[in-house]
Amino acid sequence: MYAQMVKTDGTGVKDRAEMSADEQAFQDRIDRGEKIEPKDWMPDNYRRTLIRQIGQHAHSEIVGQLPEGNWITRAPTLERKAILLAKVQDEAGHGLYLYGAAETLGVTRDALTEDLLAGRMKYSSIFNYPTLNWADMGAVGWLVDGAAIINQVALQRTSYGPYARAMVRICKEESFHARQGFHIMMKMARGTKEQKAMAQDALNRLWYPVLMMFGPSDKDSVHTAQSMAWKIKMDTNDELRQKFVDQTVQQIEYLGLELPDPNTKWNDETGQYDYSDPDWTEFFDVIKGNGPCNVDRLAARNKAWDDGKWVRDGLMAHAAKKTAAKLAAE
């Protein structure tokens, strides 16, 4: 759920009677649990939706490097620095596989990048929040990557082959990230008074933004039904959010931290935790570009891209010279 509110072009699921013969056959393959591969026929809308979803996911990995990268130079020990750097590097690697998966749908990485930089494509709202103390490095790994895993484990079964396979690899690394994040939280929660305060501060600040990662409430989620019919979304936003809350409350208790939401209570009837909704006005503000870090995040990505132009051009020019020299020698 580094992808939120991915548009499907239509509203609701297309009725079978309205489908062409190709579309019917395509839907039948999906219903049988077959994987769709790049050269297979697919409806344009399926292709466009997937490009948006995978692209948004890839962008989230890349922009997601920034809030954690913010602490690499301040990591408190050599080991913590190495682990954090390796983790942020993994995120860049995830971006690479995902752009690769998107390219199989007929779009280039550069075109997707230009769309991100121009603000035409989104990335997950969570990365528009700042990382303010070292415990954020724990909380991001534990909660943000933890929330991502809940969605991505399901996406390993998604209908589009290259996306599903990228997810298998990504999930393995994400679970390592979540564990290292929890380990930082344990150290902090059981450390000095100041460290415990950092841990609580990080949890309180990130709790609702993490709940927002799953996207708006099902009743406000107009694209879910079609995406689920295509098996590019496996569970609804609220189902995933509930699963996350249920698993995380116990971890918060284990850490000995206060629950960030005092209304969190076990409900015997439903067999799950009740919890408060995040402030959806804030969510839509962040999505519109008004989160605490939207402007800075996009500016940082644009700067890296613009400053790097001469490097990309230089290396391409050199590669072209080498190819020309090789051809001339033959």
């Binding site: 890349i62 990268g69 750097l85 971006g95 890296a304």
Partner: peptide
């Protein structure tokens, strides 16, 4: 980290 000219 996060600011290089290209992902690779």
């Amino acid at each position: 980290c996060g600011h290089a000219p290209v992902l690779e």
